[in-house]
Design a protein around this nucleic acid. Sequence first.
DNA 1: CTGGATGCAAACGCTTTGCAAATAG
DNA 2: CTATTTGCAAAGCGTTTGCATCCAG
Lengths: 135, 135
Amino acid sequence: MTASASRKTRQKDAVWQALHAQDDFVSAQDLHKVLNDSGCRIGLATVYRRLNALHLSGNLDCIEHGGLRLYRICTAQRHHHHHLVCESCGRTIEITPPDDGWLQSVASAHGFTVSSHTLEVYGLCGDCQATQTDE
Amino acid sequence: MTASASRKTRQKDAVWQALHAQDDFVSAQDLHKVLNDSGCRIGLATVYRRLNALHLSGNLDCIEHGGLRLYRICTAQRHHHHHLVCESCGRTIEITPPDDGWLQSVASAHGFTVSSHTLEVYGLCGDCQATQTDE
DNA sequence: CTGGATGCAAACGCTTTGCAAATAG
DNA sequence: CTATTTGCAAAGCGTTTGCATCCAG
């Protein structure tokens, strides 16, 4: 077993690059469009495969919203960060809870081990609060 | 405009009843199965329509996980509760964060208003930790 | 009666998968 | 050369929708 090599391909690189160019969560389809727009020929399925792989290997954060999956490079390998999502414009801001401790306590109180957790806060950002006047 | 009446039907009642009988989040399909099992003939589409309506009218909480939508009667108009979800057996336990305050602070620090938030904690429950021995 | 509600099945949108062709090592 | 990766298109999944029928008021 010669350690089934993970081959380095133009597409893998492209996906990784494109992810870095994003500063918000993107869907697979978004990323696929971005890639093709920038002249990189790549199949949608490949984008999905890459995104899944990267998520599994812990390099991508993933949130689900509105029935679709959004990915983002996991900048914080060491610290969970969560998000403040504007329900109107979709803007996302990373937030850090001051206290992860209670979570562990509560979990173990129920005999649970914690492998991951997600916290998504929905609301309106400043701009959209202003725009809320027109319904 | 004679206030387009919302008719009271056997199915509407059934869905509402069934929701009350659940003590965990359920998917539309789950609920549909439960209903048909209990002898109530109802279409899947109707369950979906009812669930959406109830969610819109603010009577149902909704979380998304694994690409599907789970609903639960919104018992806590007054207090958010979150969940401890076992990744193996799917068991769900309600947990209550000791401190919702920081959330509001962080949000307003970014100019956000908070309309809702979800916190889901994934891990393994005691039973499943024991069963983890077989891979 | 009348129009909202239902049931069915087809349509949908996002994601995954089968398989043959392409290509990295 | 060989096996991983890709691309395409078809399949899969949960959900929504069109339309004829049904039934509450």
